[in-house]
């Protein structure tokens, strides 16, 4: 896969205009049950680019369908699934797909940059988690100490 065959993660962050997405959706609806892979992908990619979580989820669902139906597109789908899940904040899934893709194509620039992004995000949220957790621990400690104090006071 050459470098311009896959979009970078930044591309996924720029949502389409409502009208543009509408065009893709209409095309997808019009082809009905026998929708072609390309049309399905176009709509799915439009949805992934959207900034609404519901759209992104539906986009991932469509991509999953493409993955199941079209084995020849699986490799590409891996990247989009990783990207979509990354946007949704499902880093475990994103990593699962992205790592698989990197395993197949270890020189894939887009996948490598996505890997970096995922890890940054996980680290950031990890920090946040530590902060929250430590906050909770401190609060619990304070509460505990108060209770303990209260108990010891009452016992006295």
């Amino acid at each position: 896969m050459s470098s311009d065959n896959l979009p970078y993660a930044a591309d996924a962050e720029s949502p389409l205009k409502e009208a543009e997405l509408e065009v893709l959706r209409r095309q997808y609806d019009r082809e009905g049950q026998y929708v072609s892979i390309q049309t399905k992908f176009n709509y799915a990619w439009g949805l992934i680019k959207s900034d609404k979580a519901t759209d992104q989820r539906y986009g991932i669902k469509l991509l999953t369908e493409i993955f199941r139906d079209a084995p020849e597109r699986r490799r590409e789908c891996l990247y989009y699934l990783a990207l979509g899940n990354y946007k949704l904040g499902n880093y475990a899934e994103a990593r699962r797909y992205n790592d698989l893709l990197l395993e197949k194509e270890n020189k894939n620039m887009q996948a490598m940059s996505l890997k970096g992004l995922i890890e940054d995000r996980v680290a950031k949220e990890g920090m946040l988690g530590v902060a929250i957790l430590s906050g909770v621990v401190i609060a619990a400690g304070v509460m505990g100490s108060f209770l303990y104090k209260g108990l010891t006071k009452r016992s006295l």
């Binding site: 896969m1 311009d4 065959n5 979009p7 892979i37 992908f41 990619w45 020849e72 590409e76």
Partner: peptide, 13 residues
């Protein structure tokens, strides 16, 4: 996951 032998990628499409 088979090799992709399509002449264009989905993104190009």
């Amino acid at each position: 996951i088979p090799e992709n032998d399509a002449s264009y990628s989905l993104f190009q499409g």
